[in-house]
Design a protein around this nucleic acid. Structure first.
Lengths: 145, 145
DNA sequence: GTATACCCCGGTTCTCCAGTGGGGTTTTGC
DNA sequence: GCAAAACCCCACTGGAGAACCGGGGTATAC
């Protein structure tokens, strides 16, 4: 149930890409890393993973960078986590056979819990999070004044 | 979202204890381990952890062993997992401050997913799993005949 | 008082996370 | 062309935790 550093970095990076999605221009790893305080060489690996999963597209060479592969409201947190965590969400069997009836019953209950969590992650999109972030920042500003 | 070997062993052991709960007599580590194919020295550690969490009680000396601390329908899978996994389910903050608004928004969504999963685990008790196991075994028997 | 069984502590191997580094390839702009 | 900018790929390290194994201590029944 632990949110890994990897996944958090990935989501932060995608939020940054979502913010610049309308411009149509690619964002560089360095800029994202600087903005969100992420080690850039590490972020590079995460973005490469997400590129292979089809979440982002990359443009090589000078003036290159990364762009979201689709609109921010079409990317859910589940998409990100599954991409970055290696889609090992539901192994078909707990081990390599399990065989025991007890093992099956336990695994079914566990799977039900996983599905419940995934359903929540599925309905949260990058757009949602970006909107919530904006609202939160507006609120902070009002308190400040 | 991964069901660890630890937790599965722990649940298997408690199911075994639940099956012998009516007898009122303690079950020994060796017997549980043999019945469920768990390394006994490892199971010992898990049972010690669950004893410290108050899920089971132990009786030392000859004819000793372990007994459930309360009735099987009063122990949920969430109890077991939290005990065995070290109750690190919801850290109040992702890191040691997070500070960024983005980090907070992400963490809130994640917490929502965790709560959904925990709600599922909460409603599954040892009694439930034991009943399902029995029903499954009956079914297997019918197919066999 | 001895056998039984829990109790505590420490070590070992393995895998994964988090992060760093080197060297290669593609593209822009001159 | 050519150099700089940027992605691309591979490998390595340090630390943490999982899954064990083993030794010696302690309480309890018979």
């Amino acid at each position: 149930m632990e949110l890994s550093c990897k996944s958090e970095y990935a989501i932060l990076a995608l939020l940054e890409l979502a913010a610049h999605y309308d411009s149509g221009e690619p964002l560089q790893i360095r800029q994202i890393a600087a903005e969100q305080n992420i080690p850039d060489r590490y972020l590079e690996q995460l973005l490469a993973t997400m590129r292979r999963s089809g979440l982002v597209r990359s443009q090589r060479g000078a003036k290159g960078g990364y762009i979201l592969a689709r609109e921010p409201w079409k990317i859910s947190l589940l998409d990100v986590v599954e991409s970055i965590e290696g889609l090992d969400s539901q192994p078909p069997e707990p081990k390599q056979g399990t065989k025991s009836v007890e093992g099956m019953v336990i695994w079914e209950a566990w799977k039900e819990a996983c599905l419940a969590a995934e359903a929540v992650l599925q309905k949260h999109t990058l757009q949602d999070l970006a909107d919530k972030r904006d609202a939160r920042q507006q609120l902070d500003l009002m308190y400040y004044i």
